[in-house]
């Protein structure tokens, strides 16, 4: 299937997804469940990765600053800027595309091949809306919190790394973290995070929903979902950066 066909089919799919839910109460409890599945269950991986990345960014910056004229607090500054601007939104987005994306595609895909989606349809339930909308809403709601968590943990990681290796004093690092802070960068990254949250739920849902065949095809769809949502994240990152930071 060509790119344009996918875009057309995806748009039609979205129209089905974004319609009024059958039962408010059920819908709400589904969102809560998805927040747990997609958000709370991702806290561990986000914390671990952010902690280490923050530490590595701090050390790399410190070891690359041979020039004595450059002040030590730049390490704190650089760690904050990297986490805030790029790491906590884009890299975390990519990692979640792998974790959450494959999960969603295989969940919905196996529901398709075992006719559970048909079972919903024959009951008169709009299956696309029922299965996918709670995921999108949950992710768009919870991922900004994951983003903020990631920024904090990353900066802490940098702080610890600098302190433990004796490369940067805690006070210098903290000064750097507060230095030249541009609040708009947070809005910029939160917008990105929400767009990525949409991508990592909607694209894998789409691939899962239209699986044909059996378990093998579900696996393939899940791989495709991860690859394509990652590419879309990178592409939209570029576009959003051009629009928002220009």
């Amino acid at each position: 299937m060509g790119l344009f066909e996918h875009v057309g089919k995806f748009s039609k799919f979205l129209v089905l997804v974004v319609s009024k839910p059958e039962k408010g109460k059920t819908f709400f409890s589904h969102i809560i469940k998805e927040i747990h599945k997609l958000g709370i269950n991702s806290i561990g991986i986000v914390v671990i990765i952010s902690l280490f990345m923050g530490a590595v960014i701090a050390l790399q910056t410190a070891y690359n600053m041979q020039n004595p004229l450059l002040p030590d607090y730049l390490v704190g500054y650089t760690t904050r800027e990297s986490m805030l601007l790029e790491f906590s939104s884009t890299i975390v987005g990519l990692i979640l595309a792998g974790k959450v994306g494959s999960n969603i595609a295989s969940e919905i895909g196996s529901m398709r091949v075992t006719e559970q989606i048909d079972a919903l349809e024959i009951m008169g339930v709009n299956s696309a809306n029922f299965l996918v909308l709670p995921k999108i809403i949950a992710a768009v709601f919870i991922n900004p919190f994951l983003y903020i968590l990631s920024v904090f943990v990353g900066i802490l990681g940098g702080l610890f790394a600098g302190y433990l290796t004796g490369t940067v004093a805690v006070s210098d690092f903290i000064y750097g973290v507060q230095f030249g802070f541009i609040p708009y960068y947070i809005s910029y990254s939160l917008i990105k995070t929400c767009v990525f949250a949409f991508i990592i739920t909607a694209i894998p849902s789409y691939y899962g929903y239209f699986v044909k065949g059996g378990a093998l095809e579900v696996g393939k769809a899940s791989t495709k979902a991860v690859v394509n949502s990652s590419i879309l994240i990178l592409l939209s990152n570029l576009i959003l950066t051009q629009i928002l930071l220009k």
Partner: peptide, 9 residues
Amino acid sequence: VFQGGALFD
């Protein structure tokens, strides 16, 4: 009733 049952897992 579907061929494989199609119960919600």
